[in-house]
Nucleic acid binder design. Structure first.
Lengths: 203, 203
DNA sequence: CAAATTTAATGAACAGTGTTCAGTGCGCAA
DNA sequence: TTGCGCACTGAACACTGTTCATTAAATTTG
């Protein structure tokens, strides 16, 4: 069965080729700025060929979103090493924000872009994101169990912290902090993170 | 001077006609979903005519953003009636979130869409947004002056509260709360608002 | 090995997009 | 009434995502 397995492998290589080019272009020009023709040109194939490997543009979008979700998971994973749930939670938050700041394009893909959100539940990228979110909620639950907060409403605590972190990153990467001088923005974000940590301590 | 002033008026009426159609279409189909041809068809003119009144699509974008900013200001304004700065701040936050939930399309336009953010500083819409933001920061400052917080770092307090509110609204309207059942989402958002208020009290 | 069949790749096309520009025809001033 | 200016437009350009018949090459079959 050497031939079928080779064909399988070649098909996989082609998908990688497309995805790598797409991700690279996307990071350069943003998601909307990249066309199927751009990707085709980058890999030196005709636009029609792309459609032999991905049903349409949104399938490429989902595949990229999966890559981004995996990268994000890997970025957050080291936080799990902290024994103390409260330290784990702080590290998780710090790494979440750090990921967003370092990879605005990927963060965009994961949390901001609208695109084809309808059928997202069935997609691998979403399942991976859910798993990471679950880890976050579990960490909050561990803090609740260890009586780090007065409140025991894990769901709302987790959601509130997430809102702050997401708001912080997305205001930053979507250029809505222009009322602050550029060199002060990152510092303000850091101060705000410290503040929400302090606020959470007295929760 | 009857003729020139009439012409002036007619020009203004035409711009209104375009903008009203654009805003209506935009609220129906989202910003990316509306084309110049759609707008032209809606007002029964040729696409080329649009370009006699707006330089390009991004100028229509700015004009719409200004409308949205004005609507948002009007939505938030009643908060100013509260004498007590802390009550004023709470009301401001509540109304901010309410605006985002009720007008996701406009909120999108103001705080999420990337589009032509480069030259935004010179645009009226931005100036209006800055003014509303300034009112928010002043309210926080009034709370600080009245010793409602232990912290005196007005800038960081204001920014932290904004991050939370923006994160809350944008996770909601960009469909990133799908891990929560639909009927629970708005309620969770409200609980989170109450929680950040409580957190801020002990700030 | 040759013929038949499957399969990868493509060029051309369709309907859509933002935008430009050479006209066209009407209102107004002289 | 003539002529100028101006609001308006049809047609075009270069782009977009996507489809499909056709070509060419690889593989299977006789």
């Amino acid at each position: 069965m050497g031939i079928t397995s080779r064909k399988e492998r070649e098909k996989e290589e082609m998908r990688r080729l497309i995805l790598d080019a797409a991700l690279r272009l996307f990071r350069e020009k943003g998601f909307d700025g990249v066309s199927i023709r751009n990707i085709a040109e980058a890999i030196e194939y005709s636009p029609a060929t792309i459609y032999l490997y991905y049903k349409d543009k949104s399938e490429i979008f989902f595949a990229l979103q999966f890559e981004a979700a995996a990268l994000k998971r890997d970025h957050l994973l080291p936080a799990a090493a902290f024994e103390d749930p409260w330290q784990r939670l702080i590290e998780f938050g710090r790494r979440y924000i750090d990921f967003g700041m370092k990879h605005p394009d990927l963060y965009d893909l994961l949390f901001i872009i609208r695109s084809p959100m309808e059928s997202i539940e069935n997609q691998d990228c979403w399942k991976l994101g859910i798993a990471t979110h679950a880890f976050f909620v579990e960490t909050v639950q561990a803090c609740v169990d260890a009586r780090y907060f007065k409140s025991t409403d894990t769901e709302t605590i987790a959601y509130t912290l997430w809102c702050h972190a997401h708001g912080l990153v997305s205001l930053f990467i979507r250029e809505r902090m222009r009322m602050y001088p550029e060199e002060k923005r990152a510092e303000l974000a850091m101060r705000s993170f410290d503040m929400i940590v302090k606020m959470a301590e007295s929760l």
